[in-house]
Design a protein around this nucleic acid. Sequence first.
DNA 1: TGTACATCAGTGAACGCGCGTTCACTGATGTAC
DNA 2: TGTACATCAGTGAACGCGCGTTCACTGATGTAC
Lengths: 218, 218
Amino acid sequence: MDTETDAGSRARNRRGEGTLLRADILAAAAELLAAAGDEQAVTLRAVARRIGISAPSIYRHFADRQAILLALADDAFAELASRLAADSAAAGPNPADRLRAACTGYLDFAATRPQLYRIMFGGLWNAAEGVRSGSVTLAEVTGLGRQALRVVTGDLAACAAAGVSASTDPTADAVALWLGLHGLAHQRIVAAAFPWPADIDERVVTALAHLSPSEGNS
Amino acid sequence: MDTETDAGSRARNRRGEGTLLRADILAAAAELLAAAGDEQAVTLRAVARRIGISAPSIYRHFADRQAILLALADDAFAELASRLAADSAAAGPNPADRLRAACTGYLDFAATRPQLYRIMFGGLWNAAEGVRSGSVTLAEVTGLGRQALRVVTGDLAACAAAGVSASTDPTADAVALWLGLHGLAHQRIVAAAFPWPADIDERVVTALAHLSPSEGNS
DNA sequence: TGTACATCAGTGAACGCGCGTTCACTGATGTAC
DNA sequence: TGTACATCAGTGAACGCGCGTTCACTGATGTAC
């Protein structure tokens, strides 16, 4: 049962609703990425097949293949940033709880969207200098990435101010913490077979955030 | 000046020396990888062009394209493991110095061979279950990876035993430390433009190894 | 010392493939008069 | 209320490309007798 789910045909959009196809293209690209576990699977032709349109139709909405991936990453970074902020806020007033919630949210995001995570942080963008997808530019995407980091930085600073973190430089330590989260998220995707210690998340977060070993966390 | 350095011709090996070409193939693959900054650039035809042989000749030495990359990774993991051991040993008797030397060695390895590092830890092997390159299997490669980790684990345990690390579980903490090193190595390759704090290496290592903030390191 | 032969290292032409991209087009739909 | 027309969304055929891989082969070199 390996059929590729070709949508046979697709009703044409009404005039003025051309942008609907843009959303369909991104959705199809995301599905292909998730299903294949490989960025290579996102080809213009595969995307077109999946929606039930012809391949050249995509050019009405994206300049080229790279632009699709850039737009995908843009959405994903925006979602990550707002999710971290939401998770942090939902954890209540205790700054350590908030920081831990943001870290858990980060790891969960990566675990549930492994292939998307890989294109976000996988180095695709070294070659993407000049690419733009509609109004989306590389600069905007990295800007969204930094918004996510800002959540962590804010929470860590609050921990330090409250005396629950021993960090003396929350801005720099937040970068270090993020690197630990990234290393963990990335390797758990890539080396799922590795015998990870059960409490590895806790271990990485507590050490890098300079928290006292977790007590009284839910 | 974008010529691809085709070696025009190449003297055929004598009988019994067929394995010489195997080494040439791996060297050419490594060069292509380093030059292109992209695993995709390592194609059978590009490798063949570079050495000055015909593409089908490669099949005498490797089962397929994937097998070349596997062999490349195998060599690289072996080099990393022996290098970490050497750096650690060269740092003298102080366990904290040894641990820091191994960490520095790890980061330096990644920084000087960024593309090789990416194929080692980039998740290429999820799909490589059945691949073998000569006697090299996936299991052997991951075994070499764990040898590198064992150096870090040993040094961290020595630090804990000597009281210079507060780690109470060096085996698990070594994994956490490695994850931090990996996150740092990987993102510095991939997001070179990010404004990394100057002391980020020190920050990551000290926190994850539970060392007291460095004093008296050379 | 000579000769037939097996082996080895590597070749050249060809295959089918899916890809990104281009081009000129079609036909429905809204708009101006 | 009707009609010409511009615009918009999407099509179908075709291009050239580099790729992995296959096949039958060539010719040098060592070995057995």
